[in-house]
Computed example of a mutant assay.
Amino acid sequence: MSRKSLWLGLIMAAMVASLLSFHVDAKPKKKKYETRSGPPTLSLAAEPMVIKACEDGHVQLAATARASDGAKLRYRWTVNGGRLRGDGPSPNWDLAGTQPGVYQAVVEVDDGRDLSCVAFSSISVVVLECPPPPPPRPVCPTVEVSCPEAASENAPVTFTANVSGGTPGITPGFNWTISAGRITSGQGTSSITVDTTGLSGQTVRATLDIIGFGMPCPASCSVSIPIMNKPRKFDEYYDIARNDEKARLDNYAIQLQQEPGSQGYVIVYPSRKAGGAQAQERSQRIVDYLVNTRGIDTHRVTTVMGPAREGWVVELWVVPEGAPPPAPQR
């Protein structure tokens, strides 16, 4: 091979190598993209989740989100009722004035760079109807019970109630109780009558409880039954011997002397066979013995003639001061 041919071959080889090198350098480089693992993690809470329309309607929302690469996140909130106050992960949701129903809050979270990679969540809050207001607290009426200051034994006593005011629209009921005696009429009404038989020396208290107001509404009144002095039969004898009669009258005189304020009443029931003069004679004989023999003041002894009976009967009575005199029995 000639030297000229050798140089020509070397030149051709260098040109081919240069072309190959240019082709490699001219090949375009692939664009590198940042690899992402997914949207942010997100959870959503609300406190409280149930409210009443008549109460404080503020609900605290709380979104907890985190980007996989730790990037700063942004929050976009929407609600279908009420008003949002604040932004970021924890706005306050004001549902005051809303009607009862179910309301929803929605949050979208992204990092502001890749809008196709968004996390979203929603939560519901229930607004309940308010219960009706409780009825007004009942108010007892003004209750006054009147009664006499004093009464007599065996005489009926009347207790009367006067009721006024209290919660409107309530018809009062009357329930009476008494400490002694017996209610003879009026239970369940505003006035009762009480039998005081045998209650001498006691106090009768009538207590009225007005019912229908949901609470005790009592009132009471008391009346005293003074001890009534009563005549008492000291002795009784029939047509007995004169000496036996004197013995009876002796005991009677002693009793009158032991009770200086008392009076002696002698009731003579003559025999139907005796005449009027005989009855008067026996009556006078008793008085003479008490006054002249036993020394009883004549003003302290009273004789009363009772109706005639089958046989003679004489009753000796002691009448304390202030007590009514005995009456002959028919």
Results as ranks from 00 to 15, higher is better:
T78M: 06
R113S: 03
W93N: 03
Q99A: 13
R66H: 14
S90F: 06
V107Q: 05
S121N: 03
W93T: 04
D111V: 07
S68W: 11
S90P: 05
A63D: 02
G101A: 08
N92R: 11
D87N: 14
V118G: 01
S124T: 14
D94L: 09
Q60H: 03
P132M: 09
Y75N: 05
G70W: 06
Y75A: 10
P100V: 01
S121W: 00
T64P: 00
K72G: 08
A105V: 05
S90R: 12
L73F: 03
T78P: 01
K72E: 11
A67F: 01
A71Y: 02
A71C: 07
Y103N: 06
D87F: 08
D110P: 07
V102P: 00
D94R: 04
P131S: 03
A71S: 13
E108Q: 09
R85C: 01
A119V: 05
E129S: 13
C117D: 15
V79G: 07
D110V: 04
L128H: 12
D94E: 08
P100L: 02
A62E: 14
R85A: 05
A105S: 11
G70P: 06
V125S: 04
S122W: 05
R113W: 02
S122Q: 14
L84G: 08
E108L: 02
C117H: 12
K72Y: 01
N92T: 12
V102N: 07
R83F: 14
G97A: 03
V106C: 04
V118F: 01
D94I: 02
T78I: 07
T98W: 03
A119F: 03
D114N: 15
W77T: 04
I123S: 12
P89R: 11
A63L: 05
S90V: 13
A65T: 02
A71K: 12
N80Y: 02
C130Q: 09
I123Y: 06
G70V: 10
S121L: 00
F120T: 10
P91Y: 10
G112H: 04
T98M: 08
D114L: 13
V79E: 10
V79K: 05
D111R: 05
T78R: 09
G101N: 03
S122H: 12
S68C: 04
N92V: 13
V118K: 01
V109H: 00
C117W: 08
P100A: 06
W93M: 09
A96Q: 10
V79I: 15
A119G: 03
R66F: 14
A71P: 01
A67L: 01
P131I: 02
L84A: 11
S68F: 11
N80E: 06
A65V: 06
Y103R: 02
G82Y: 00
P132H: 08
R83V: 15
S122K: 13
G112M: 02
D114Y: 11
A96F: 01
S122D: 14
A65M: 07
Q104T: 15
D110T: 05
T64S: 14
T64N: 11
A119K: 03
V79Y: 05
L115Y: 06
S124H: 11
P89L: 08
R74N: 10
A63R: 02
F120E: 12
R66M: 15
G101I: 06
D87I: 02
G86D: 11
L84I: 12
G70C: 08
D94T: 04
A63N: 00
A67K: 00
L115P: 04
C130F: 06
R83N: 15
